[in-house]
Nucleic acid binder design. Structure first.
Length: 289
DNA sequence: TTCAATGTTTAGAC
DNA sequence: GGTCTAAACATTGA
């Protein structure tokens, strides 16, 4: 469900509240979620202390002091909830029917008890997963997964972006941005928003983009995702940040979810919705060319 | 009842 | 070979 800004938000906040926590034996209620033999998973995790929580692409990485890193993908409807023994609930993910009062619930597929509280991995649609990688080879493993560069780091320069675009000349703009092997972390919402920012139709062929348009797309991508992180993510379908407050990015979305509404550039355009690469795609036919 | 949902993978068509 | 679409995964709610 979450894209880069939402995963970044959860990861940062879990890092704050869970670092130094010692894990007890995890409980796996839905075995298919854990992509490792359950016994070895429990053996590796139990007793480990969380050193830090990080993000790469849309993955949450919990690095343990014992050499293992827990790798979590939330996919469409995954959710991470930290319930400390004392203090506030920490939530990141999709809403729980009936609220947060009953934990675990029917969507709690993996439960991580610790010395300071419990971490719940919930997932309504069961697309998400939990994996395990040796921290030592995590970098190599991530490379093997083929993820493209992180769009918000300093080394992701306009020149890098333009060089990437030259490798995908005949493809369409939006599906290429969402290709995790091209850039990591861009999903459906922010691809639409970046195209709006750059005034480019999502279905344009990359080879038709001027240099200026390529640069605007670069600026748009960085802008919408940085803005979202600043506001702790988008709360569509009631996505929640790690402190349980809804993200505030929703109110800054300019095309996503605004089908048939007026373009916020006040140019008289009406936001149109099409299907592109199997995903709902929103744009203004007036200002996006 | 039908459709679409912030993700990813795969099979098949062109 | 490259690109694209639809379908699949599973569930819910509009």
């Amino acid at each position: 469900m979450p894209e880069l800004p939402e995963v970044e938000t959860i990861s940062r906040e879990l890092n704050q509240v869970m670092s130094g926590t010692r894990l007890l034996q995890p409980e796996v209620k839905l075995p298919k979620i854990v992509k490792v033999p359950i016994c070895s998973f429990q053996r590796a995790v139990t007793g480990g202390v969380i050193k830090k929580v990080q993000r790469r692409a849309k993955l949450v990485l919990l690095e343990l002091s014992n050499g293992w890193t827990i790798v979590i993908h939330l996919k469409m409807s995954g959710q991470l909830i930290w319930r400390p023994n004392h203090g506030r609930l920490t939530v990141g993910g999709h809403p729980i029917p009936g609220g947060l009062s009953h934990l675990p619930n029917k969507y709690s597929h993996v439960i991580f008890p610790t010395n300071r509280g419990t971490l719940f991995f919930n997932d309504q649609r069961q697309f998400g997963y939990v994996k395990l990688q040796p921290t030592k080879t995590l970098g190599k493993w991530l490379e093997e997964q083929g993820y493209g560069p992180e769009p918000l780091t300093d080394d992701f320069t306009p020149a890098v972006w333009k060089s990437i675009l030259r490798q995908h000349r005949v493809k369409r703009v939006k599906p290429t941005m969402m290709d995790q092997t091209v850039i990591a972390g861009v999903g459906n919402i922010y691809a639409d928003e970046a195209c709006f920012f750059a005034k480019i139709k999502p279905a344009r062929r990359i080879k038709t983009l001027s240099l200026e348009e390529r640069h605007n797309l670069y600026l748009g991508l960085r802008h919408v995702m940085n803005l979202s992180i600043k506001h702790r993510g988008t709360t569509a379908d009631a996505y929640r940040t790690a402190t349980g407050q809804p993200g505030k990015m929703q109110q800054y979305l300019r095309v996503y979810g605004r089908v048939n509404q007026s373009c916020l550039r006040r140019d008289g355009g009406i936001i149109k919705k099409i299907v592109l690469a199997g995903r709902g795609t929103h744009y203004c036919p007036r200002c996006q060319r």
